[in-house]
Every structure is written in structure tokens, then in C-alpha cells.
Design a protein around this nucleic acid. Structure first.
Lengths: 355, 355
DNA sequence: CTGTTAGCGCTTTCAT
DNA sequence: ATGAAAGCGCTAACAG
């Protein structure tokens, strides 16, 4: 019923081996032969059998991308950039027939929802598929048990030849890491606020036990310490990386200390929720309270007032991770590179109100 | 080097077939035997070979999801909902060993960037992988050549047993379709504006030749016609589905007709750009000009003023598409269901200014 | 309930 | 430059 490589071979009057070589373009084949084969492929409307090919070659065209939340542009932007780099490549031009889908890699985007278990599950699934490479994005969960399990799993995958790249994650053995300087960014942001004269700053964190959350908060605290401002635990509320969390946490912060003059949010989405809460509480931004975010997602510049934040080069970092995963770019020296953010000062921050 | 099913069989002192049956849980196996097998799997740290399994069974665990832009939450939300439904399922509970990744389907999210060619390429790739199902999201491109090519490709995939579901797309043969009522939503929105007293409305479209773009615009025009308002082509500017397009198109609209009292955007992202342009032009929203979007993405409620828009149940529709793709929910009668939007009236629309 | 026997469709030495 | 042949690791009849 379905057309196989053997059918193509028969039609082109060559051996299956030759057809395979034409399709893979990894071996010299006479131009005339190749043409004959390609014609047969077309006429028969042949489509390569991926699983069979992967089985025989012991490697597949799949590249895994792990994200915490696919509905969040933070991850969507990185995933898109990674994906754009895994297609194309050395084999891109001609080569690989079977329905004019030349040498493309297929991105398998896995939505972990931030769950360590799902992260492991997806890695196993990817391992099953003999994925050529896997890019892990976003912060890591710091539970020791999970870290061990993850390290073990990654070690096995690396040993099996899967290329591993971390994008926006702290380094782990066996993988190339492109780390975001969350600590430095968080520090810059708070320094900016302190420079404006703020002394009573509230902070809304992301989910607990994630490196991203911890590092951004550490940066914030470092800035406070450097300015000699007491680090009052009541000024920190723990939340999630969503709008609602920002809204509720802001209300809580205000309840605890109505005199707050600035709110620093774990990311832009949270900051948006914070803005909404402040407005609903009748407070003006930045006249009464300044607000700052993190990431500089596309919508942040359109907030009113536009959000002061730390811009992370998500797209560039994702593209680079993708190229490294495909072996098209050299990994950074030592396998680790730190990607810095850039402070974007906009309308949502200003001097503190008097009183 | 790598552990195979045969190794597990040897260790558990059973035949490979039995191991396969335990792993797939699709055939009765004595409890004691199963346990022995599972133990061997664990001890050997065995990981199923996906490609080999797919080859032998002539079907894989992969489910394709085609999106126009993975960085756009419109698609991210649908993709996330689809994905959440394709894991789990009848086989979910126990079954399928090989590293505790029981019976999961892997979502292959393909980012077409709105390109018809890439759409076809990805379908071929998915066909190669013998994907169990494919969900196509977002509007279709209406070029006749592409439509034919797509129909042909989908026909072949359907014939090969791949389940096809469209989510937010107009119906095509061989596939179950969950269509958004873009025309009705567009009409409601413009009716709302007309009801407020607006007579000079600008419209910013999405990309040309896409069904979503056309339908929303048709709804807009139907509302104008019903109210006896002339459909001045100068009041329609064609753009893309992004913020910048909304910004520029709005400026162009204002240049053409400074007396405009309302701007209807193809979607929320475009509307955000429109708001920015209006503000930069020194116009107040909605006092001077009303603005309306479409989709009701999460950030829309946080716009200032909050955006009037048409809410599309993206998450629900995606989840349903996912279940249908997995055969866990009956397709709608006739294979087609229309999903309606809901008008969300918020602060960005109000009565027109005098003069 | 379990074992035996054939392949699934492709890639890859090894010849020629 | 091309062909022949031997699997890759698993599933699915078919027996028993």
C-alpha cells in the first residue's frame, strides 16, 4: 500500500542503497543516477519513513525544546528562535528528498508547566525518540532530589550522544549553558529605584525554588544591602509568574505597608498585575508608586505608563542555543556563557512621593 | 551498549513479546510476570526505542501542532491546551514502562510563521514521522494553489490514518473542524461601536489572504452596511498581526481622516499598537478615539484603558481539539463545529467626541 | 497467559 | 559509483 524505498529503487532501476544515498546526500552519487532517483521519488510520491530511518541510523531528526509555559511569550520567543535555527543548516540546500522537506529538524516543544516530574518525563520521552538534541529553557527547580534526578538523566542522554543546551538556566554538567544574568539584572533595577530616592520597596517573587526567582531576588537584596536599606521580610511576597499573582501580591504588600513607594516584580507579567492592583487601589504610577518588571516582553513598552524593566535578549539567546544544539556554532569557552540584561528605564518608575 | 528489550526479556526470563506486552499494557499478562518484567526494566534502566516501536507498529506517539507564531499567546494558549489533552488518556494510568513515561504522546509544535510553504513542509515532516494526529491552528491562507496542495496533503495523511483536527480554521475535507466565528465576532464589535454613535470607523486588518483576516473584516462591513454607513476603502488599512503594524496603520488612518472616532483592530496585539499611536498623537482613549481589539488575550484586560474586544475561548477550543485528535471525544456532528466569541465591552470604547 | 517467528523500512559495511 | 546483505529494536500474528 504505502510506497517504500524499495519501490523507488525498482522504479529508478537502482538498488535501495543508492536511493538512500541520494536522499541523504551524504555519499557520492552520479548526477544522472540521482536525477533518475529523484524523478522516481516524485512520480511515486514517496515519503521517507522517519521511524525506520531513525531506527537504522540510530538517531532522529527530532530536537526537543523544554519550556515552562508555552502560552507565555517569554518561552514562546525563545522557542521560536530555537526552532528557526534548527531547520536549515549544512544539509539544508539540496539533499534529503522524500517530499521536498529537505534536511529539516522537527522541534518537539514540551510544556512542563514548571513541574519537575513532567520535565523528567519529557526527557525520557525525548530519550525514547533518540532526539538529536535537547534545549532546556527557563529556570531550574532547585529541589535536591530533582536536581540529582535531572543530572543523572542528562548525563545518560549526553552519553547516548544527545546534544544538550541550556538556555536561561544555570549550568549543569554535560550541557552547554547560556545563562541569563538574573542576579545582575535584579540588582541594576533596584539600584535604579534606589537612585531615584526610593527607600521602601516591595518585591513580588516568582515561584519558589526556582533559580530564576532566587537570583532576581538576590540581586534586589544586594542592591538594598549596598544602599544600607534594611531587608524587611514583610516587603517580599511570594507568587507565581502570572498576572493574577502580581495583582494579589500587590494588594497584600499595600496592606502590610501602605507607605510603599515602589514595587519590583519578578517579571513583566507580574508587573502588569501589580499596575492593575495599584490603579484599582487609586494609586497613580509612578507618582504614588513606581513599578518595575523584568524581561521586557513585547507588551511591556505598551503598558501605560510604559514599564521600566530589564531587557533579556531572548530571541538572540534562543537562536544561539539552537545553533549550538545543531553543532553549527562553537559552544562558549568552558561551555558556559552569561547573557546580560539591559536596564530599560521607562515611565513606570519615577521619584518617590513625599510623605 | 544500549539496553534493548531482549536484554530485559533475558533478565526477567520471559520472551521479548511478553516484555512488549507489559510495556504496552494492551494485552493480558500475569501479575507476577509483569512485576518481574518491570523490575528488570528498572534494574537495567531500560528505555524503549521509540523509532523501532513506531516502525513495527506503523504508528508513533507524536502529535503535530501547527501554529503561525509560537511567540504569540494566541497560539501558545491553544497549543498548551491541546498538549495538556494529548498526554494522559485511556492508557495513562499504568502501562508503558521504559522510564516511567507512561503512554504519553509527544507534541511536536511546528512554527510556520504564516508561510504556506512551511506549513506544507511541516506536514510532510509529520507524515514522515507517522504522526498519530495533527492539529492545525489559526487561519488558513487562501491562495488557490496552496489550498489545493494542502487539501491533497491532508487527504493523503488522512488516508494513512493520521487524525486531523482544525482549530480556529475553516473546514476542509478529511478533517474535523472547530471554527471560530470571526465574522460574527467582527460584526458584533462594530455594531457595538455604531450603537455608541460612531460613524467614522477605521479598520486595521491582519495579513492578506488569510481567512481570519477576511472573516473579521466581513463582519465589520456587514455591521456598517446594516447601519447604512458607507464602506469607504480609505478607512481600511492592511497590516500584520503585530503591534508595530497597529501603530503604523493607525497613524496612516489618522493621516487619511483626522476625524476618525474609532479604530477597530484585527486583534488585540494590533489594538495595543493602535493605542500607542493614538497616545503619541495626543489623542485620548476613548474620549477622542475608541479602540477595539479581538481575541481577548490575557494582557488585554490590563491595557489602559482596558480593551474592548471579542473573547475567543482559545483554551477550551484547544482542549477540545486535543481530545478529538486523541479519539477521546466524539467529533461534532458533520465534523464541523462553530465556536462563538463573546463581546467584552471595556474602557477603550465610548461615545464619539462631538465635532 | 506466554513463546516463536517474521517482518516493519531503512542504513550501512563490505564487496565489486 | 553502485549493489548485496545484514541487521537496527520492536510488534504482531500465530501457535500452544
Amino acid at each position: 500500500m504505502t510506497v517504500t524505498l524499495a519501490d523507488v529503487a525498482a522504479r529508478a532501476q537502482v538498488s535501495p542503497a543508492t536511493v538512500s544515498r541520494v536522499l541523504n546526500g551524504n555519499y557520492p552519487v552520479a548526477a544522472s543516477t540521482r536525477e533518475r532517483v529523484l524523478r522516481a521519488v516524485d512520480e511515486l510520491d514517496y515519503v521517507l519513513n522517519g521511524p525506520a530511518s531513525a531506527l537504522a541510523a540510530a538517531t532522529s531528526d527530532l530536537v526537543g525544546i523544554l519550556v515552562n509555559d508555552i502560552a507565555d511569550p517569554f518561552f514562546g520567543i525563545m522557542a521560536g528562535a530555537i526552532q528557526s535555527e534548527i531547520g536549515g543548516g549544512p544539509w539544508t540546500s539540496e539533499a534529503r528528498g522524500g517530499g521536498r522537506a529537505g534536511g529539516e529538524r522537527l522541534a518537539v516543544v514540551c510544556n512542563t508547566g514548571g513541574s519537575p516530574e513532567r520535565e523528567l518525563t519529557y526527557l525520557t520521552l525525548l530519550q525514547r525518540q533518540r532526539a538529536a538534541a535537547v534545549v532546556l529553557t527557563g529556570g531550574a527547580v532547585e529541589t535536591p532530589a530533582h536536581q540529582d534526578a535531572l543530572a543523572e538523566k542528562l548525563g545518560k542522554m549526553a552519553a547516548a550522544g544527545t546534544r544538550l543546551v541550556l538556555c536561561g538556566r544555570p549550568p549543569v554538567p554535560d550541557a552547554v549553558a547560556l545563562t541569563f544574568d538574573n542576579r545582575g539584572g535584579g540588582q541594576q533595577l533596584t539600584e535604579h529605584l534606589i537612585g531615584l530616592g526610593h527607600r521602601r520597596l516591595g518585591y513580588i517573587t516568582g515561584p519558589q525554588e526556582r533559580t530564576t526567582t532566587r537570583h532576581r531576588l538576590e540581586g534586589h537584596r544586594a542592591a538594598l544591602a549596598a544602599a544600607g536599606i534594611e531587608d524587611d521580610p514583610r516587603r517580599v511576597v511570594h507568587g507565581r509568574y502570572d498576572r493574577r499573582s502580581g495583582y494579589e501580591a500587590t494588594l497584600e504588600l499595600l496592606r502590610r505597608e501602605p507607605q510603599l513607594t515602589a514595587v519590583v516584580a519578578a517579571n513583566d507579567t507580574v508587573a502588569l498585575g501589580a499596575c492593575a492592583a495599584l490603579r484599582d487601589a487609586g494609586l497613580r504610577i509612578p507618582d504614588d508608586v513606581s513599578v518595575a518588571g523584568f524581561d521586557d516582553l513585547p507588551f511591556s513598552v505598551d503598558a501605560v505608563p510604559a514599564l521600566t524593566t530589564v531587557r533579556l535578549p531572548l530571541s538572540e539567546a534562543g537562536a544561539r542555543a539552537g545553533r549550538i544544539a545543531m553543532g553549527r556554532e562553537e559552544p562558549p569557552p568552558g561551555g558556559i556563557a552569561t547573557v546580560r540584561g539591559e536596564l530599560m528605564v521607562r515611565g513606570s518608575t519615577g521619584g518617590p512621593r513625599k510623605g
